[in-house]
Each structure stands twice: as structure tokens, then as C-alpha cells.
Nucleic acid binder design. Sequence first.
DNA 1: CACAAATTCTACCATACTGATAGACATTCA
DNA 2: TGAATGTCTATCAGTATGGTAGAATTTGTG
Lengths: 152, 152
Amino acid sequence: MKLSKKSDYAIRALIYLSMNYQKGAVQIKEISAKERIPQKFLENILLTLRKAGVLNSKMGLRGGYELARSPDLIRLGDVIRALDGTIAPVNCVSQMSYEPCSEELTCVIRGVMMDIRNAITDVLDTMTFADMCKRAKDSIEKRENSSLSYVI
Amino acid sequence: MKLSKKSDYAIRALIYLSMNYQKGAVQIKEISAKERIPQKFLENILLTLRKAGVLNSKMGLRGGYELARSPDLIRLGDVIRALDGTIAPVNCVSQMSYEPCSEELTCVIRGVMMDIRNAITDVLDTMTFADMCKRAKDSIEKRENSSLSYVI
DNA sequence: CACAAATTCTACCATACTGATAGACATTCA
DNA sequence: TGAATGTCTATCAGTATGGTAGAATTTGTG
């Protein structure tokens, strides 16, 4: 039940890209440096997000990545599903990779896990990157005199 | 974000033991056979649960396992924590294995993950094995004429 | 055209975790 | 004493995680 590094990095990268929405393509190198994410690893992550339709990319000189749509239309759940796969704790309650359990009629565990899945997806599919950006900005404003550099 | 086989088996075993609460020690062999759980694997699981204080054991002839306390005092969360470790999606929101994240002041992800942890533990720490037993019995009563044998 | 800058793709690697098995050891009771 | 039971340690195959390397492809610009 742990958020993978992949998802963690993806979220940070997407917050960064949300902050730079509609300012043109941003290069992997820049995100990697600013967010301190291993560059080659980040490459894989952004590629996955592009294939999931969350990002658009431009190859070649002056290429880079940008959000495929406005930050308020990208849900946290979209990202975690793309990178970590299904969210549900057991497959028999998964919307993404559903498969009936062998004792479906009497599976008590199923019922509880359904509750948990709903609780998790409730949070993940309500929270957008616009929300997360706002949270980030708020938390920066709160500490005017801090010496820390800008970090998500 | 997937329930491990360990926890899955543990839950089934504990429901079985809850059904037999105060009827004396039940042997691994019996649970393993009735719930179709690999015996040697189940041994490890029950041992862990005993060390976590959920079960009592008796060695030797006529030995076995039984609940350390009444089923309504054993929460689902106790079990999953014992077997899968911490429940929180990131350590900086974990009660069990808390460690501050390097950018704590401004960590936006932290806030969201805290919401998720609370949502999960809400379900897990409310649900007891007495509840789960009741659910199981209800679901059995519903299908009077089914040919399926008793299975959790 | 040629080159540099960027993404894309394929492959690889070390480590840890998962699910499971094996066998020796300790304890209890008849 | 010996059979039945839990306890402990070790091992193992398979898979996931986190990360790296390098060649191939695309694109803008001089």
C-alpha cells in the first residue's frame, strides 16, 4: 500500500508542468534538475504519461513536454492508474482489471475492499492538478521569510 | 496498492477462528484444509499474528491457535498492519513508520496522501472480525439452496 | 545539407519483495 | 517414549521496483 517512486516523481513533474501550463514545451532536463529526479528514470515516466494521454510531446530541437489539457482536467487518479496500474486492493473490486473471485457469492473480503477502493478513488479522482498547484502556492506564501528554495 | 496474499489468507483464517471462538484451539492443518491455504505458508502467517498479539497458541499434542480476544476487539487494520506493515501510502503520513520528508514544509503530496491514509484507516479500523463474521453468515443465509460448500 | 538538441525505444541490471517450501527443533500429552 | 503439534531458520523461483546505457528517430537552425 505504498505510493511508488514512479508515481511520486510523476506527481512532482506534473505539478511542475502545471505551474508552467501554456508557456510552451518544457524539457526533461529542466524538470529533472529542478525536481531532483534521475533524468533517465523521468524519461520513462513522462513517456508513459504521454501514452496515457496526459502529456503531449514535441521531438527534436526545442522539443519537450506539456500538459495535454488544463490542470483542472487532470486528476491525481489518472496519473496513479497510468503508472502503478489498478488502484483497487483486490482485483474483484477493480474497475480497471476486474476478475471475479472464485467464491464471489460469499466473498466477505470483497465487500470491505470495495469500501476501501471507493474511499481511495474518492480522494484521487476529486483532486486535480489545479488543486495541487493551489495547495503548493499557498504553502509557499505562508513562509515568506524562509530560506528554502522552491520545491514541491 | 494491492492486498497481499498474506493478508488475504490471514483474514480468511481469522474469520474461520472467529467462527470457532471459545471452542478451544484449532489446528493449522484444519484451517489450511478448510480454507485451502498452503499449510506451511499459513504457519508463518499465524506465527506473525501471534507475535502481534492477535492470536494465542498452544504447542504440542492437542495444541493449536485461538483468538487472543473477542472478535469484536480485533480490527481488520490490526491484521493488515501486522502482515503488510504500514498502511499509509507514504511514510511522511504514516503513524507506524513515520519519517519526515525532506521538503516537509511544502510537501503538497503529503497533504493528499494524508487524506487517503485517513480514508483507508477509517474503513480498516472500524471493521472488526465480529462484523466480518456477521457479513459472512448473512451471505450464507441468503443462498439457502446453493450447492456450494461453506467458503468464506 | 549537416549538425545539434531533443524525444523514443530497447535492453539491461541490482536489489528487494512475494508466495511458497523444507527440514530441524521444541513442547506437550497420552 | 513417541506422536502430534507449534517454532524457527533457511532456501527458492518469480516478479516488481528503481535505475542506467545507448542507439535510433525527429526536428529546428545555420
